Computed example of a mutant assay.
Amino acid sequence: MLGFYLLLAFSPSSGPGRLLDHWLNIRLVFTFPGLVIASVIYSLPFMVNPLLAGFRNLPADLNEASRTLGKSDWTTLIRVLLPCLRAPLVTGAVLSFAHTIGEFGVVMMIGGSIPGVTRVASVAIYDEVQSTHYPEANHYALALLALSFSVLLPVYLINYRHNKSPL
C-alpha cells in the first residue's frame, strides 16, 4: 500500500514528482535513489521507536543543566542529548536496515527489478520462485537470513550487556 502511494507521489505525472523532475531534474521512480528514499520512509518507525525510548530515559537534569549554562536548544540537542543516545541511534539504524533488507512491496513499486540498477535480493527471491528455481531462491533467502542475523546479533548483545544490571 505504501509503495503504491510513494509510486504515485514520485511519478513525474504527479505534483511532487513533476516538481522534482522539472525543477531539480531528479527522477525517483525506478531509480536507486528513489529506492533508498522509499526504503527510508518505509522503515522510519523502526528508527523512531528506539529514539523515543532513548529520549524518555534521559534524565531531565541534562537538559536543565545545559540551559542553565546558556546553551541553545539546538546546541543542547547536538552536544548533550544526542551523544547520550548513541545506543538507541545504533539500534534504530540497525533495525531499520534489517527491516528494509527483506522488504518487497515498496521495492517493487518504486524500484522495479532493473538488473544492475534496482534489483535487490528480496525481488531476486521472488523472481526465482516465479521461475521455479527454488535452489537459487533458497540461496538468496539464506544469504538474507545470514546477513540479518549478523547485523542484529551484535546489537542485541551490546544492548543486553549495556542494560544488564549488576547483582
Score class of each variant (00 low, 15 high):
residue 108 M to A: 11
residue 55 F to G: 04
residue 51 L to K: 03
residue 144 L to I: 11
residue 25 N to I: 06
residue 85 L to G: 03
residue 127 D to I: 14
residue 81 L to F: 05
residue 49 N to Y: 12
residue 158 I to Q: 12
residue 80 V to Q: 07
residue 115 P to W: 07
residue 83 P to C: 02
residue 67 R to S: 15
residue 112 G to L: 03
residue 79 R to L: 11
residue 127 D to G: 05
residue 156 Y to E: 14
residue 128 E to D: 15
residue 86 R to W: 11
residue 31 T to N: 03
residue 110 I to P: 00
residue 138 N to R: 12
residue 152 L to P: 00
residue 133 H to Q: 14
residue 94 V to M: 06
residue 144 L to S: 03
residue 93 A to D: 03
residue 158 I to F: 12
residue 127 D to M: 11
residue 164 K to D: 03
residue 9 A to Y: 06
residue 97 F to N: 01
residue 113 S to K: 04
residue 57 N to P: 00
residue 121 A to E: 05
residue 61 D to V: 13
residue 123 V to D: 01
residue 128 E to W: 01
residue 53 A to Q: 15
residue 9 A to M: 15
residue 12 P to Q: 09
residue 2 L to P: 00
residue 63 N to Y: 07
residue 108 M to E: 05
residue 151 V to N: 05
residue 114 I to M: 11
residue 129 V to T: 14
residue 6 L to M: 10
residue 151 V to S: 13
residue 120 V to E: 01
residue 75 T to L: 15
residue 25 N to E: 15
residue 3 G to K: 00
residue 145 L to S: 13
residue 67 R to G: 13
residue 144 L to C: 09
residue 26 I to T: 08
residue 111 G to H: 00
residue 19 L to F: 15
residue 29 V to C: 08
residue 124 A to P: 02
residue 148 S to G: 15
residue 148 S to F: 01
residue 70 G to H: 11
residue 55 F to S: 04
residue 116 G to T: 11
residue 101 I to H: 02
residue 109 M to Y: 00
residue 142 L to Y: 12
residue 102 G to E: 04
residue 119 R to L: 12
residue 57 N to Q: 13
residue 83 P to A: 09
residue 21 D to A: 15
residue 126 Y to G: 06
residue 147 L to I: 13
residue 115 P to A: 09
residue 92 G to E: 01
residue 42 Y to L: 13
residue 4 F to E: 01
residue 97 F to I: 09
residue 142 L to H: 05
residue 37 I to D: 01
residue 86 R to V: 10
residue 21 D to S: 15
residue 66 S to E: 09
residue 29 V to T: 14
residue 96 S to R: 05
residue 78 I to H: 09
residue 159 N to D: 12
residue 76 T to A: 06
residue 103 E to H: 08
residue 100 T to D: 02
residue 153 L to Y: 13
residue 42 Y to F: 13
residue 7 L to S: 03
residue 158 I to Y: 14
residue 104 F to P: 07
residue 154 P to E: 04
residue 135 P to I: 04
residue 167 L to D: 12
residue 116 G to S: 08
residue 10 F to W: 05
residue 22 H to S: 14
residue 74 W to G: 07
residue 103 E to S: 10
residue 4 F to R: 08
residue 41 I to E: 09
residue 53 A to D: 10
residue 26 I to G: 06
residue 35 L to Y: 02
